[in-house]
Each structure stands twice: as C-alpha cells, then as structure tokens.
Simulated assay, not measured.
Amino acid sequence: MNRLDGKVAIVTGAGRGIGRSIAEAFAEEGATVIATGRAASANSFPDGVHYLQLDVAKEEDWERVVADTIGTHGHIDVLANNAGIIAYETLHDLTLDDWNTVIAVNQTGTWLGMREVIPHMIAQGGGSIINISSIWGSVAVSGAHAYHATKGAVRNMSKSAAITYAKENVRVNSVHPGFIETPLTDAQAPEINDYVVSMTPMGRAGTPREIANGLVFLASDEASFVTGSELVIDGGYLAQ
C-alpha cells in the first residue's frame, strides 16, 4: 500500500534505531522523507529518503532544515520527533550540564520542531506531528529522572498542542515505546535491559519496525480523527 503517498515527512534521530526504521517505513508507504541526525552524513537510505544534518537542540538548525524542505518539496505533512538521549545517574549525582543536555535534546528539541513546522501546516490546511515519548513518560524506575522528566513533558506538551491546533487540522499524538532493541539500548548495562524485559508481559524486547508501524498509521489519513492520543507499543508493560 501507499498510505503516505504524496506526503513529505521530517524524521529526527534517523541515523539508526527507531528513527531509521521510521524513515524507511514512511518511504515504503510512498512518502518523501527528510531523515535527520547530528552526524554530517549517514549510511545509505532507500529511495525516497534524503538525509540532512540537524541538531534538534539548535534553533538555527531547525530553521535551515524546514526552509530547505519547504523550498525543495513545497510542503511538510508529517513531523516525527524521535531524537532522544538518556542519562542514568541518580538525581544527586547528575551534573547540571548533563541535565541541561537531556532537556535540550528530548524536550526543547521536540518543542522547536513543532514550533517550526506548525505555521506551515496551518497554512497548507493540516498535518500530523508524532512525538516519541516513552513508557517512562508515564511510570518510573530508579534513576533516569532526567529522562522521565523530559518524556513526561513530551507526553503533556503533545496533548496541549493537539488541543491548540485541532481546528487547524494539525494532529499531534505521542508514541510510547517499551523496551526496544536499538543501538541505544545495546549500549546500556545488560542488567538494565534484562530487568525491563523481565517486567514486560510479552517477555521480549520490541523491534524498531514495530514502533515505525505505529507511526505510519498516525502519519496517514487513516488517523484523520486521532489527535491528543497516546499510542503505547510496549508488550503490555503499562497494562500492569
């Protein structure tokens, strides 16, 4: 199917993991995809995916990427705010610099992306914004307080944006992955990964494509009456 045929989508954090799967899934469904990441270049993508460098915490980077996308393709129909980082230091050990870095990428980066694309979406009659939160935007574990703070902020910021722009047909939803096998989780301590999997009713990690499939729906016109929602893809973790 070409569920996203004719749409232009920006995907952040698309160099690897969930973001790369989102970009590939969007392209397979017919979208023209602007895949972005902090690196100057990325490994080859399939047809329909174009890579641009973007540090989501930098206002000028967002202005450049959005202007380039509009100038080249004429419109932006979908924004997938996926870029994110995590810190596991306890609250009393985390430095202010590290706190600010997590906030800048996960929270400010999401806000900047929405702020930059929403005027274009309003002008063209609508669009779909999908913000990646986390199961840890709703519940907590020991440590990771900065990540919890930002993902909780993304969750509620998405709802506020959804209400604010509903009459302009700009839909805003959040996606809440559980434990997903990615380079980010591969770099974590094995005991952390084993613990989260052990707490997941399905007894396994998810795959990036399982998250991407959910974003395809939210990006498509099939979700035309879906805004302000939380799509949980977590193997049952939050059902407990």
Score class of each variant (00 low, 15 high):
residue 118 I to C: 09
residue 120 H to R: 08
residue 122 I to L: 05
residue 122 I to M: 12
residue 123 A to W: 07
residue 124 Q to F: 09
residue 125 G to A: 14
residue 130 I to S: 00
residue 131 N to D: 06
residue 133 S to G: 08
residue 135 I to F: 08
residue 137 G to D: 12
residue 142 S to P: 13
residue 143 G to L: 11
residue 144 A to N: 14
residue 144 A to E: 15
residue 145 H to V: 14
residue 146 A to F: 02
residue 147 Y to W: 09
residue 148 H to D: 14
residue 149 A to V: 03
residue 150 T to P: 03
residue 152 G to R: 13
residue 153 A to M: 10
residue 154 V to E: 10
residue 155 R to D: 14
residue 158 S to H: 07
residue 160 S to G: 08
residue 161 A to E: 01
residue 162 A to P: 06
residue 164 T to M: 01
residue 165 Y to W: 09
residue 169 N to E: 05
residue 170 V to D: 00
residue 172 V to C: 05
residue 174 S to E: 11
residue 174 S to W: 04
residue 177 P to Q: 08
residue 180 I to P: 04
residue 183 P to K: 04
residue 184 L to P: 11
residue 186 D to V: 07
residue 187 A to N: 08
residue 189 A to I: 08
residue 189 A to S: 12
residue 191 E to Q: 14
residue 191 E to L: 12
residue 195 Y to T: 12
residue 195 Y to N: 08
residue 198 S to V: 02
residue 198 S to Y: 07
residue 198 S to P: 02
residue 198 S to A: 14
residue 199 M to L: 14
residue 200 T to R: 02
residue 200 T to P: 06
residue 203 G to E: 11
residue 205 A to S: 15
residue 206 G to T: 07
residue 207 T to Q: 01
residue 208 P to H: 06
residue 212 A to L: 01
residue 217 F to I: 11
residue 219 A to E: 01
residue 220 S to F: 05
residue 221 D to H: 07
